[in-house]
Design a binder for these strands. Structure first.
Length: 107
DNA sequence: CACAGGGCCGTTA
DNA sequence: CTAACGGCCCTGT
């Protein structure tokens, strides 16, 4: 019989990309999917991050949507957490938005 | 199998 | 600027 992967390869690739996002930089869902060789998997990236364990080790906070906004409801707990983490890394928001020209991970 | 929904995206109005 | 669509991929019911 064929050995089927015990873990999800796609998720692994996505995680791999997210881990390599440098401090002080951010990446969009679509960008990550593309770098992982999975163009079009933006929503899937969101799905993966959604059910991450609390202590994950992944810099999920450096992942934002294409509009430079945090994909959480402003004011919600999770929004605050992500905001704090970003701020701690020197990433600031202007009118609830991040300047992608300046902070987006260039590769 | 059908359908809804999610930490999305780009285009169009 | 907001809103609506269609497209993309996967999971849960």
């Amino acid at each position: 019989m064929l050995d089927e992967p015990k873990y999800d390869v796609k998720q692994d690739q996505i995680r791999n990309v997210i881990i390599s996002i440098p401090v002080g930089k951010v990446a969009t869902y679509g960008q990550i999917a593309k770098l992982a060789g999975l163009a079009g998997y933006a929503r899937y990236v969101g799905y993966v991050l959604k059910n991450l364990p609390n202590e994950t080790g992944l810099p999920w906070h450096r992942v934002i949507n294409a509009q430079g906004r945090l994909s959480f409801k402003p004011g919600s707990e999770r929004y605050k957490v992500q905001y704090q983490k970003l701020l701690f890394e020197g990433i600031t928001l202007t009118n609830g938005r991040i300047n992608l020209k300046k902070h987006q991970w260039q590769y």
